[in-house]
């Protein structure tokens, strides 16, 4: 009415003009990743790894290949295994993170990287040398929140999600009756 809407539109564009642009110039700047981003370049702590190959067993795609031999280093404490081969074929990885969840000794984490484009498929396989030498940039997804709270799963008390610093996830709020409510109902019925 009276052309005022057009003036309003001009003010909107002017506001956008003054604001900082949303885009970043990629190769020079990088978008900050969320700490729980499940990225490529797995982070592996060899000193914690026993070579149990739980990650390989739990991988739904079977893309982790582990070859070990008895290390003979600490026979008194029950020998652990030295890792010969630890190949992760991230060309087929779907970044579900089940390997991280499966690891009983907190030795494997997702990474925070996202620039793993390669020219050949065989380059996409992360070898054990690369896992050893790579910069440790673990994603804080799943385990390290607990780790940051000095939580030791083998000795301490179990810790709640809230205690580990996780936000309550709004989609998991009890919209339905909780398990307790359901069980009490079931008991009340007969």
């Amino acid at each position: 009415m009276y052309g005022l809407g057009i003036l309003n539109g001009f003010m909107v564009t002017l506001k956008n003009f003054i604001r900082r642009p949303f885009t970043i110039s990629y190769p020079e700047q990088r978008a900050p990743q969320h700490p729980r981003f499940r990225g490529e370049e797995f982070t592996w702590y060899e000193e914690r790894c026993t070579g149990c190959a739980s990650c390989a067993k739990f991988c739904p795609l079977g893309i982790i290949r582990i070859v070990t031999h008895p290390s003979q280093e600490t026979p008194a404490e029950g020998d652990s295994y030295a890792i010969d081969v630890f190949d992760i074929d991230i060309g087929r990885c779907m970044f579900c993170g089940l390997c991280v969840e499966a690891c009983p000794y907190d030795a494997l984490f997702m990474g925070s990287g996202f620039e793993e484009a390669k020219y050949r498929r065989q380059d996409l396989v992360i070898s054990v040398e690369r896992l050893r030498t790579a910069e440790k940039r673990p994603s804080t997804w799943y385990r390290p929140q607990l780790e940051a709270q000095n939580y030791d799963p083998r000795r301490g008390e179990p810790m709640t999600w809230q205690g580990a610093g996780r936000e309550p996830w709004p989609y998991h709020l009890p919209l339905r009756p909780t398990t307790e409510e359901m069980t009490t109902d079931r008991e009340a019925k007969p």
Binding site: T13, N16, F17, P21, T23, S25
Partner: peptide, 12 residues
């Protein structure tokens, strides 16, 4: 400037 108006950077 069009880039800035649209929240982009524009040719750089």
């Amino acid at each position: 400037l069009l880039g800035r108006f649209q929240g982009r950077i524009g040719p750089n």
